[in-house]
Design a protein around this nucleic acid. Structure first.
Length: 157
DNA sequence: GCCAACGTTGGC
DNA sequence: GCCAACGTTGGC
């Protein structure tokens, strides 16, 4: 199994939005970065787990856990001229952008703030913590994943 | 293919 | 709101 971290701005789409969706399941739309796309398209597999990360907000951090319930398929918002994610260079015959479907497995009682993640040398190789990093979909090692789960237990009891 | 200008991300 | 770090665009 692979482990991931996926960012979303809560004002755009929060973990509560995902929980409100039918079966707490939704498509992950709007990724418009090639590296992030390639991770989703080429490496994300059914059953992989991912942290839901809230970015660009008052307290950025990890807010819950998802799993991948559908592997990559074309991001239809890229084909919709009315979507803010519209990309005229993407066509049905040759889709440029891809999405996966995710399901919320757990929402943490307390967020794991970015500022806390930064305090542990065990995590200092995480892409998330690299200076200047802006990647919105990134892999985690199983060690990083497990370490963050123990942090979560300490925080949430 | 180079690179300056511009747009975006996202922490603070 | 500021700004650093990137990614993309487009002229040449």
């Amino acid at each position: 199994m692979n482990y991931w971290l996926m960012k979303s701005e809560p004002t755009t789409y929060s973990i509560d939005d995902l929980i409100r969706a039918p079966k707490s399941t939704d498509h992950w739309e709007g990724v418009r970065n090639y590296q992030a796309r390639n991770f989703m398209r080429d490496n994300m597999r059914l059953g992989d787990q991912a942290f839901f990360y809230h970015s660009n907000c008052e307290i950025p951090g990890i807010v819950g856990i998802m799993d991948i319930v559908r592997e990559s398929y074309p991001d239809f918002t890229a084909l919709d001229p009315d979507s803010k994610y519209y990309d005229p260079k993407s066509t049905p015959e040759d889709p440029r952008w891809f999405m996966v479907s995710v399901r919320c497995l757990e929402k943490f009682k307390k967020i794991i703030p970015l500022g806390l993640l930064k305090k542990y040398s065990e995590l200092n190789k995480m892409i998330l913590l690299k200076p200047g990093n802006r990647l919105s979909v990134m892999p985690l090692t199983s060690q990083e994943w497990q370490f963050i789960l123990t942090l979560k237990k300490e925080l949430n009891g």
